[in-house]
């Protein structure tokens, strides 16, 4: 009987040692993963956003109104954009949407270049819609702003604003 208990104790001790090894191996894996995750450069903060599609041939910037379907304020802002006299803002005008539905909001406004591209919309990644994004002539993003009213749209198209909080 004593032999059985002794051997059980030895086995249990061995089991604990094996478990300790297993845990330390696991911890090392976790630490390596952590270091690997930290080593990955964080995109955004320092990276400059650039969309070559919105680079212009001339020296003028491009204002892009980013809209989504099912968004009444987007429709109002798009209609406002369409009503602005061509040549009044100091740049090209464009509207970016995921589907073709919003195109009817700017029907007949030849001065607005409509871009339907869900993938591009996802990579521009605005927080809320409608948003206005200003691109420099080389396609570099200068700023982005959520546009809550027609007056704000006029103001943003007319004047430079400082860097916005959600522009990274």
């Amino acid at each position: 009987m004593q032999n059985v208990i002794n051997s059980l104790a030895v086995f249990a001790f061995l089991g604990v040692v094996v478990a300790l090894f297993a845990i330390s191996a696991l911890l090392r894996t976790v630490r390596e993963l952590q270091q690997a995750a930290l080593a990955v450069p964080v995109p955004g903060a320092s990276a400059v956003r650039r969309v070559t599609r919105f680079a212009s041939g001339d020296e003028r910037p491009t204002f892009v109104l980013v809209v989504t379907d099912q968004c009444p304020s987007c429709e109002q802002r798009a209609a406002r954009l369409a009503a602005i006299a061509p040549g009044l803002p100091a740049g090209h005008l464009s509207m970016l949407s995921a589907g073709p539905d919003p195109l009817r909001w700017i029907e007949g406004a030849g001065h607005i270049q409509a871009v339907v591209d869900a993938e591009l919309l996802g990579s521009v990644a605005v927080g809320a819609t409608p948003s206005l994004v200003k691109y420099a002539p080389d396609g570099t993003e200068e700023w982005r702003r959520v546009v809550g009213s027609d007056q704000d749209l006029d103001r943003l198209l007319g004047a430079d604003v400082p860097e916005s909080s959600n522009a990274r």
Binding site: A128, T129, S131, S149
Partner: peptide
């Protein structure tokens, strides 16, 4: 009031 509206995550 000056009322502004946008849409955000639905």
């Amino acid at each position: 009031f000056t009322v502004r509206e946008v849409s955000w995550n639905g």
